[in-house]
Amino acid sequence: MLSRVADALYWMGRYIERAEHTARVLEAMRDLRLDLREVNREVADEQWRGALKALSLPELSLSRLVLDPAEPTSLLCSMSRARENARQVREVISPEMWEKLNQSYWSLRDSVAAGQNESTLSQALTGIVSSSFLWDGVTDASMIRGEGWLFLKLGKFVERTDGVARMVGARLAPSGVSSGTSGENVTWPTLLKSLDAVDAYRTAHPKRVERRAVIDFLLFEADFPRSVRYSTATAADLSRRLRRFHPELGQRVERCFGRIAARVEYADLDTLDAATVTPFLLELGGSLSEASSLLQKTFFLC
């Protein structure tokens, strides 16, 4: 496979996952601000800023972050980049995948044309999340399981690990809301919501939403598809399968992702608070970006 094509697939996976993640976080944060508008504006604003920082987004209005074609970090631009990447690799993805992404892009453009108000923004955000789900489905149902599929999926799970870890980290940042305050009651559910984990968490912990349990769930739950553990284990599995195509070159990449998964699986953090989790997440972020650049250096920069 051409290095450029593999690179485009990897980044397409990352862009689409990032768009989905960003859309979900932005929607959760918008709801939080609405809920706390009267009660505790300070907490809401702080959470909003923390989330933007975790998403590496500039402090702009929601509408600009979603639909501004001139703002390079907007969701519209991310989707457009994903589509451009897809267009470059049309000969290796299935026609249905292209069609799906193309349709999602056009419907987002239609929202821009329709004018920006509360309801179009909300529609655009849910639209992006469900487009990403559809895209996943179409991909898994139609794309050949060659190395291209593996690169695409690796991009997705590297991005997902990073996104979840950053959100948890942001919640624990020193400027975050300290335990016992009134904000504590809403911010942990918001974190779950922003990672689409509310129902799954409830099934595992029917009693109440509680800091320790939320962190444990989002980081270490083996069966929740958006937990750090699940994502790193999937990435490790994908990198192992890459060996089939690259017996020699793939070795180091596989070890790198395998180490990360093992580190997460066998992590032993006793307190699960900022003092233990923050350094753990920092280390995770570091090794993840190392693995990602090793992958790129090995396969894309020939």
Partner: peptide, 30 residues
């Protein structure tokens, strides 16, 4: 891209190609 897909061949751009030892090569993941 249509023709490349139908023929099952790689669609390359200039930057994917390089001349080494007098032969034209493409940069692949291998």
């Amino acid at each position: 891209s249509f023709l490349a897909r139908c023929m099952g061949i790689s669609l390359v751009e200039g930057s994917d190609l390089v001349v080494r030892d007098g032969a034209v090569c493409m940069r692949t993941t291998q």
